[in-house]
């Protein structure tokens, strides 16, 4: 049972990174200027590296003969366990940066906690990912400040992005039975503690940027159970096309 819980937990971590990375990669050639284009795709590459490491953990624990590529390219929408936030279309630059800042803050706190996991391979991967996420977080926080202190139009776009994305954030901290079991074993992170830390950090940053926190309202959920928005299907259609059309293709 523990192996199955672990497998699903690693997929949660890996799928979150993979969908995040794929959306960032869509910016290739569309960044607002060259350096930013390069930054977006570099970060996409780092996060794809994290997805790869988490998939490896899943492969190592799996009882079937499954590969990292199988997990990334041959599962359908209902097999993916990422939160809905990371599958949302990339939107404009403000939307991408607000989403990035939310997820970087989440990853920073989560990987810090997972560095202490008693499951050593997971702690090793978290430590590695953390060195990179620190850079990502610094950058998305800088963009948050820069855009909010910029023109009125930029501020409006940031507020609009915040209003749209805010209700997707609570799903980041959801747990299921397996995750709660793993947390009790000292393997998984305590999501309630991550939620508190995230809100305390993110809300103070948003207020410093003079953004207005949306009132409570509708809240996204479902990713952990494999229930997704229509956006994930389109993303997978593009991302998985090659492996589906040419199974086992390698170069």
């Amino acid at each position: 049972m523990e192996a199955e819980y672990l497998y699903h937990y690693f997929l949660r971590l890996a799928d979150t990174s993979l969908t995040m990375s794929q959306r960032l990669a869509e910016w290739c050639g569309h960044g607002p200027y060259l350096e930013e284009d390069v930054a977006l795709t570099n970060i996409s590459l780092d996060i794809m590296g994290h997805a790869n490491l988490f998939y490896q953990l899943a492969v190592e624990i799996s009882e079937t003969d499954v590969s990292v590529d199988d997990l990334a390219f041959l599962r359908d929408v209902d097999g993916f366990r990422n939160p809905l936030l990371t599958e949302l279309p990339r939107g404009d630059f403000a939307y991408t940066m607000v989403k990035q800042y939310f997820v970087d803050s989440y990853s920073l706190l989560l990987y810090r906690a997972l560095s202490e996991s008693c499951y050593q391979p997971l702690a090793d991967v978290a430590k590695k990912a953390l060195t990179e996420v620190q850079y990502h977080h610094e950058r998305s926080h800088e963009w948050l400040k820069r855009l909010c202190m910029s023109t009125e139009e930029a501020q409006q776009k940031m507020q609009k992005a915040l209003d749209e994305l805010w209700f997707y954030t609570s799903e980041l901290f959801e747990s299921d039975e397996g995750m709660i079991y793993l947390q009790k074993q000292g393997i998984a992170a305590d999501m309630e503690s991550i939620r508190e830390q995230w809100h305390s950090m993110v809300e103070s940053h948003l207020i410093q940027c003079q953004l207005i926190l949306p009132e409570s309202g509708w809240v996204a959920t479902g990713g952990l159970q494999g229930e997704h928005s229509e956006h994930l299907g389109y993303m997978l259609a593009e991302m998985q096309f090659l492996q589906r059309a040419y199974p086992g293709c390698d170069w």
Binding site: E35, V38, A39, N42, S115, T131, Y135, R139
Partner: peptide
């Protein structure tokens, strides 16, 4: 720019000789 030609590099400029150059980012151990 904090991100340069590869993931491990940032882009800098020298204020004296005015040349842009790559800087290998510091990755301190956690």
């Amino acid at each position: 720019s904090q991100y340069g030609s590869t993931a491990c590099k940032s882009l800098y400029r020298c204020q004296d000789c005015l040349e842009p150059f790559d800087y290998f980012k510091c990755h301190a151990p956690v």
